[in-house]
Each structure stands twice: as structure tokens, then as C-alpha cells.
């Protein structure tokens, strides 16, 4: 993939309005949003509830159709791909969601969840036992977990399986949508470490979405601050979070307990 020069993934002018009840104007979730993501880097996206950060993730994954704008990955139109392009996109860009309680189908085992993902992958080893064990190993789970059901796993373990499922297609980009927010504090750090290790080993690029500024600052090279569907500030992690220019970013930083005196 493109290492230098043009970004790996770029979007501009993204718009999305959710229809309101009874014909009212509705809620403008994305208002002219753009972003650029280079190979191997992490773009952090922060914002409060309703800022549109999760809608952005869903639009990039084609889980929600955008009303307008462009998004391209390696020259492919991400919003309206052809069938073959859609498969390439699926193999290149994956997502990990927030809720460890709903990340796995309660009636299916880890093996079934991972096998479903590996079938989409291009590699010939896809679906073999070795591949599944490798995947579990890469997220720090042992092979005994292969036949476990979600209720037999802890929240942290289920989130590791969700990460393994995203990795099953060997993607270049992983979108992490609040992926540690619902985890216990003492488990969060080990999942963050896992994401950092995987980035180093596999050269992954992350779009790391979170409301937690401390976590975003730790994970990101560049940061984008969203408010009411708009990007209000972006730049390097250090610039935005240590020397914020927009008043909203300053307000956000001031309300994080303990961030100043760390």
C-alpha cells in the first residue's frame, strides 16, 4: 500500500442527517467532515455524545449510508464500491465496537465467530485450525478459548475476540469505536497495550474513536476534535491536546479530572 505521499484513506465533505420523527428536520450528525489517515498511524477522534464520531465510523464502514461527500481508500470509492471493490474494502478496513456484551452472538462460539471472519480473508490458510489459534494467540488468548461461548468469557476477553475477528482478514486499517470504554479500568490498559503491539507488528493504521481524552492522547499520532457533527480542531496529538486552540477543546480538556496534574 501507499507508504508515502498520498494518504491511505481520505474523506471529505461527509454529510449525514438522521431523519426526525414526524417529518421534522432531524439531527445533523455529520456536517462537512473530512479526514486523512496515513499507513501505520493512529488518528484519534474525540468528542462528546452526539458529536457524530460514531456516525463517521459507521459511514466509513458502509453500515450507514452518507448523504453526501467522498471517501476513498487506496483509490477505491468507499461509499459506493462495486462488488469486487467492496470485498477489497472489507479485507482492508475493519472495525471493533464498544460493547463487549454484544460483540459476539451469544449462541455462537469463539471458533464460529472467528471462522466466519476468516472465510472472508484472501489467504489460503483461512479457516484452518492453525489460523484460528494464531489469531487467538495474537490477541493473547489461549486455544482452549476456541470453543467457549461469550458468556464463558470476561468483558476483556470478549473484546480481545472482537479484535481478533477484525484482524482475521489481515486489514490495513482498524476503526476502534470506543473499544475500551466499557471495560474495567484494570483491563483497559492491557487491551490498549494489545492494540499498540499489533500496530507495531502488523503496521496497522487506527482510527481511534473515544470520549476519553487521556486514552486518545496515549494512543494517537494525530487528533481530530468533533462537536455537533463538525470537526472543530485537528493536528498532531501534542498540539491539539497540550496546546489547544479552539475554545471547545480547551473546555473539554479542562473537564477531564486529573489530566492536568499527571
Amino acid at each position: 500500500m501507499t507508504r508515502h505521499g498520498s494518504p491511505l484513506l481520505s474523506a471529505s465533505g461527509l454529510r449525514k442527517r438522521y431523519p426526525g420523527a414526524g417529518g421534522r428536520a432531524g439531527h445533523l450528525a455529520l456536517d462537512d467532515v473530512g479526514l486523512e489517515l496515513n499507513a501505520g498511524e493512529t488518528l484519534g477522534i474525540v468528542g462528546e455524545s452526539g458529536s457524530g464520531k460514531s456516525t463517521l465510523a459507521r459511514v466509513l464502514m458502509r453500515l450507514t449510508p452518507a448523504d453526501g461527500g467522498v471517501a476513498t481508500y487506496d483509490g477505491i470509492d468507499m461509499l459506493r464500491p462495486s462488488a469486487t471493490e467492496a470485498l477489497r474494502l472489507t479485507r482492508a478496513v475493519q472495525i471493533v465496537f464498544q460493547d463487549p456484551n454484544s460483540s459476539m452472538n451469544p449462541r455462537r462460539t469463539v471458533r464460529q465467530a472467528l471462522a466466519e471472519a476468516t472465510r472472508v480473508a484472501a489467504t489460503p490458510a483461512a479457516g484452518t485450525e492453525d489460523r484460528l489459534v494464531d489469531l487467538l494467540d495474537s490477541v493473547g488468548l489461549s486455544r482452549e478459548k476456541l470453543d467457549a461461548y461469550p458468556h464463558q468469557l470476561s468483558g476483556g476477553q470478549r473484546q480481545r475476540v472482537a479484535i481478533a475477528r477484525a484482524l482475521a482478514v489481515s486489514p490495513n486499517v482498524v476503526i476502534a469505536d470506543e473499544c475500551v470504554s466499557a471495560l474495567d479500568v484494570s483491563v483497559q490498559s492491557s487491551v490498549l497495550n494489545l492494540l499498540l503491539d499489533l500496530q507495531r507488528e502488523l503496521g496497522l493504521a487506527y482510527i481511534f474513536i473515544s470520549h476519553d481524552l487521556s486514552v486518545v492522547r496515549h494512543m494517537s499520532d494525530r487528533v481530530m476534535v468533533m462537536k455537533s457533527g463538525r470537526v472543530v480542531e485537528q493536528g498532531t496529538s501534542a498540539d491539539v491536546l497540550l496546546r489547544p486552540r479552539h475554545t471547545y477543546t480547551r473546555e473539554l480538556l479542562a473537564s477531564v479530572p486529573g489530566l492536568g496534574d499527571g
Binding site: 459507521r58 464502514m61 453500515l63 467492496a86 470485498l87 472489507t90 475493519q94 472495525i95 465496537f97 464498544q98 460493547d99 454484544s102 460483540s103 459476539m104 452472538n105 465467530a113 466466519e116 471472519a117 472472508v120 472482537a162 475477528r165 477484525a166 482478514v169
Partner: peptide, 10 residues
Amino acid sequence: DYVLAARALG
């Protein structure tokens, strides 16, 4: 999330 993840897998 697991339904969304399956959709994200195409």
C-alpha cells in the same frame, strides 16, 4: 455489535 461486525465483514 456482532450483527454490525458481520455486515462489516461483507
